[in-house]
């Protein structure tokens, strides 16, 4: 389908091929799918309380219940598959979580900055929050040399103040202004 799918598959195969992480991967599946089964179960019960209609045989809750029931079955199926993998995989070496965190430090760092940015947009306004976010992420991703720093500053200003101007004055869509308006 989408162009992303094949890249996802390529990356995924690399990950799965890693023997050391196979058990951890299966465990992560068990935890995620287990949590989803519980969540879907609770929602299934909640959907039963939604009002029915005198005009139609199916009420508001019927379709979600149908979907949630199938989702629970599929998640249990995935858990059964992953349980077999978990049992059959060699025990992961010590410090795997630490190594994983270290290997993903950039992605996790960018994600943390993105979360702060999302929270910051209504508080600081789009322009200021974007300026800070663009600068910090570029620094996080390794911009160090003076020339790169100058380019990073231009990009930060262009895509914070520039986008704000474009949307406010050209498209007449006001982005969050914050206290510094």
């Amino acid at each position: 389908m989408s162009p992303q799918s094949s890249s996802q598959q390529t990356r995924s195969s690399d990950r799965v091929a890693d023997d050391d992480t196979r058990r951890a991967n299966a465990l992560a599946h068990l935890l995620l799918n287990g949590a989803l089964v519980v969540l879907f179960g609770a929602l299934f019960v909640q959907a039963g309380a939604l009002p029915s209609s005198m005009w139609e045989p199916l009420g508001s809750g019927s379709f979600p219940r149908l979907v949630l029931a199938v989702l629970m079955v599929i998640n249990l199926g995935i858990m059964a598959q992953e349980w077999r993998r978990y049992r059959g995989a060699p025990r992961a070496s010590a410090g795997l979580v630490k190594r994983w965190m270290w290997r993903h430090r950039l992605a996790l760092g960018v994600l943390a900055l993105f979360a702060l940015y999302i929270v910051g947009v209504p508080m600081l306004g789009f322009r200021l929050a974007s300026l800070l976010f663009l600068t910090l992420v570029q620094l996080t991703l390794g911009v160090r040399r003076p020339r790169s720093l100058a380019i990073a500053a231009i990009i930060a200003v262009t895509f914070s103040f520039g986008i704000d101007w474009l949307f406010r004055d050209v498209f007449i869509i006001s982005l969050p202004r914050g206290p510094f308006g």
Binding site: Y117, I118, S130, L134, V137, L141, G142, V143, A152, F159
Partner: peptide, 13 residues
């Protein structure tokens, strides 16, 4: 280092 933050900002917009 340029693409990632710029596209993320555009996503928010």
């Amino acid at each position: 280092s340029v693409i990632v933050p710029v596209v993320l900002v555009c996503c928010v917009v």
